[in-house]
């Protein structure tokens, strides 16, 4: 690995950025925060800044998990699921996120929904993205200008892995047929979208709820990745396209400024232009 201190670095074929990252478990997965390890600054101060920022993000994730997790019997969401707490009496944060999720249900023609088939309010499909969004706001407030947050495969970035340069963050997308391999990569951040979310199942043949749409199982997708400027948009649309199939895919690409890479059940790919010849565009 080659290091460089020259800003305004080259394209994908150039030197690799030096990064530092810290992780913590939350929401049933692992969250990682990566920042550039700029040469020339005192490593100890850098590490302390990163660890302080990670602590802020961790606190935020865990706080939301305590309220929204259906796996925690003592959570607000669990109380609602048991019928002990009405939505109208829920916390402002819960009601706000429910309203947001409900709006997305309308916008996606019902492909995304905030309610389980049994009527229980389930915001699990949106709360991780919400946590990433809130964490991003906090990191910006802390004055961090270049970072990459990854929560179990959903990504939100700001700036560049080489501070001061035009170099984008490069996010690999896992091949659902081989989790040790990458299908492709997409530049995020500078001159690109800031958020990337992926919905899918690693089990062939398994398909998630389909909003009552016929033919979704056969023509459906095994994995859907959506890049957008906001993590909520990316996450909701990835989930919605998984559920709604080709019809929702067409809706998403016509209504939102997004890049989509969908892996079909038969292994074929569907992709918007941003996923074509990414290397050529950046070299």
């Amino acid at each position: 690995m080659q290091h460089t201190s020259k800003p305004g670095g080259p394209g994908l074929g150039g030197s690799e950025p030096r990064l530092r990252s810290r992780t913590f478990p939350s929401m049933g997965t692992v969250v990682s925060l990566a920042v550039p390890a700029a040469p020339g600054t005192a490593p100890q101060a850098e590490v302390e800044e990163l660890e302080a920022a990670t602590a802020v993000v961790e606190q935020l994730f865990n706080g939301l998990d305590r309220a929204f997790s259906l796996y925690r019997p003592d959570s607000e969401a669990s109380a609602m699921a048991r019928g002990e707490l009405a939505l109208a009496d829920a916390s402002a944060g819960m009601r706000r996120l429910y309203v947001e999720a409900s709006e997305w249900r309308t916008l996606t023609d019902g492909a995304f929904t905030a309610e389980r088939p049994d009527g229980v309010v389930d915001l699990a499909g949106i709360v991780k993205a919400h946590a990433l969004r809130e964490a991003g706001t906090s990191l910006l407030a802390l004055g961090l200008k270049d970072w990459c947050l990854n929560a179990g495969g959903d990504v939100l970035v700001v700036g560049s892995p080489i501070p001061g340069s035009a170099r984008p963050w490069l996010a690999g997308i896992v091949d659902p047929a081989d989790r040790t391999a990458l299908l492709t990569a997409l530049p995020l951040g500078n001159a690109g979208k800031h958020a990337l979310a992926t919905s899918g199942t690693s089990e062939r043949g398994h398909h998630i709820w389909s909003a009552g749409l016929q033919g979704v199982r056969d023509e459906g997708f095994r994995q859907v990745s959506v890049a957008a400027d906001g993590i909520i948009t990316a996450d909701v649309l990835a989930t919605a396209i998984m559920a709604g199939g080709a019809r929702t895919l067409a809706l998403a690409t016509s209504q939102w400024d997004v890049e989509v890479l969908a892996v079909k059940n038969d292994g074929g790919l569907l992709a918007t232009p941003g996923f074509r010849n990414v290397g050529a565009r950046n070299s």
Partner: peptide, 15 residues
Amino acid sequence: AQSANVQTIGGATVT
């Protein structure tokens, strides 16, 4: 893409 060239990995939520 090779994992050596990327800074982060997107995918369906991992446990």
